[in-house]
Design a protein around this nucleic acid. Structure first.
Lengths: 131, 131
DNA sequence: GTTCGTGCAAACGGTTTGCAACAAT
DNA sequence: ATTGTTGCAAACCGTTTGCACGAAC
């Protein structure tokens, strides 16, 4: 993780201590955390940080293109620091979300859909993690 | 739409008037409605039907394999009567969800993912509907 | 009369918003 | 002084649940 403060500034975000704490966690993980998981992870470093600020911050980051909210599970939004196009695998047992590189799976035929102009697409795979 | 009552019975569901009303709407549409949209659509035919019954009924249908809940939007679950594997296109402007036949888009490479056993997959396309 | 389904209202969990205190410029 | 940020609490919205009434076997 390079200098988080610089990254925030480059995206037009004032680097407050709370935002830096959130950014350092959320930009440095590939666990696709929920807002509450971010809160739990940042609490020890910044105990006064409230849920409201978590949501404000995550939504701000999303609006500025630092994060992408993903409706992959029912009832919660998970935040993905991986902004470039890629795919997701969801473990049936644990519900955990794993990144799948964009080139690991190939999609063909999306250009020939009648009546649609496809801007982006994503493959959601569900299955089991082999150990 | 064949006889809805028969379909319910075949899935081990007692066909009450409320369930029949819900089934006739939800099994006969491809609009991927939310629970509230189902409620609104069934209200005129069955004005006493409560939200609780809507949720009970939709969850029952899902448990019995008549419907598949899909986490395609943030904050709501949409119900899909299309149970066979297929894909979805979400209109950027309206948020509406359209079915994309399973063979209109081809996915390759999912079998070769290291460490994963893929049970099912789905392509989520986002873009604009051309008119 | 027991079982199952309904409907109301209350509870719930994730998210948002209003607002007062508080930096920072 | 103005602008922007925080944190609390309350509101909000989609969904679930507890429970009493009612229908069906």
């Amino acid at each position: 993780m390079t200098n988080v403060i610089e990254v925030l500034r480059q995206h037009g975000i004032q680097p407050t201590p709370q935002r830096v704490a959130v950014a350092e966690f959320v930009l440095g993980t590939d666990t696709h955390p929920t807002a509450d998981e971010v809160w739990a992870a940042v609490r020890d470093r910044c105990p006064t940080l409230s849920r409201a600020t978590i949501y404000n911050t995550l939504n701000l980051f999303a609006a500025k293109g630092l994060l992408k909210p993903q409706p992959l599970k029912e009832g919660v939004v998970v935040f993905d620091a991986h902004v470039a196009p890629h795919h997701h695998l969801i473990d049936d047992e644990t519900g955990k979300v794993f990144d799948v590189p964009g080139d690991a799976v190939k999609v063909t035929g999306e250009a020939s859909l009648e009546g649609f102009e496809v801007r982006e697409y994503q493959v959601v795979l569900r299955g089991r993690r082999r150990k």
